[in-house]
Computed example of a mutant assay.
Amino acid sequence: MKPRHKKLVIIASAVTALGVASVLVLNAFQSNLVFFFSPSQVVAKEAPIGKSFRIGGLVTEGSVQREEGSTTVRFSVTDTVETIPVMYTGILPDLFREGKGIVAQGKISANGIFQADEVLAKHDENYMPPEAAEALEQAAKAQKASLIQ
């Protein structure tokens, strides 16, 4: 084999290896990507069915129901326009309260209940997750616009 052909084989092998590595990295990145949706977006069917995503907003007052003898909790999350029922099995964060901001990660089931795998709560009096704060702000703007019309 001539030196010129050896160089071409090495270059082709390097390009192929780089392509395979790029495909594997992008595939891993896409499978771990989790999007955020507000309750209004979930009701509008913008959220993916059967895929994990995050939902955020305020825990609706009076909606928290704990199952007897279990760690399963049912509650509702609202962005002040729409409300989504959530079911979570596990230990809730200490700062989880009605009327406070949360972000939950999980999937929406066929019956419209969000099955949460993880629930995150705010960490002090002045903090709300940025996604949840933005969703609440947009919902308030939409509500004002509908009242004006």
Rank of each mutant, 00 (worst) to 15 (best):
T71D: 13
I113F: 01
A21M: 12
S109W: 00
V42C: 07
G99P: 08
E82K: 14
F36L: 05
S38H: 02
V15A: 14
E82H: 11
N32T: 10
G101D: 05
A47L: 06
I84Q: 13
A121G: 11
V59N: 05
V43S: 15
K122M: 11
E68N: 12
L92P: 01
Q105I: 06
G99W: 08
G106N: 04
T60L: 15
V73G: 01
F75H: 07
S52F: 00
G62Q: 11
D79V: 06
G56M: 07
I91R: 09
R74Y: 05
G112F: 02
I102H: 02
F96R: 03
Q105N: 04
A110V: 03
H5W: 13
Q105R: 15
T60P: 03
T71F: 15
V73T: 14
S52Y: 00
P39G: 09
T80I: 12
G90P: 05
I10G: 02
Q115T: 12
M87G: 10
F36R: 03
A44Y: 06
K7C: 09
I11Q: 06
E98F: 09
I49T: 13
S70T: 09
T78V: 03
T83E: 08
Q65S: 14
A121P: 10
N27I: 09
V81E: 09
K100N: 11
H5M: 10
A12I: 09
K7G: 11
V43M: 08
A116E: 04
R4H: 12
T78W: 02
L24W: 11
I84T: 15
R54L: 06
H5A: 12
S13C: 13
N32Q: 14
V42L: 07
N111D: 15
S52W: 00
V34I: 14
R4T: 14
V59Q: 04
Q115L: 11
G62M: 08
G50K: 04
V34C: 02
E61D: 14
V64M: 04
E46P: 10
S40T: 13
V103H: 03
V77H: 05
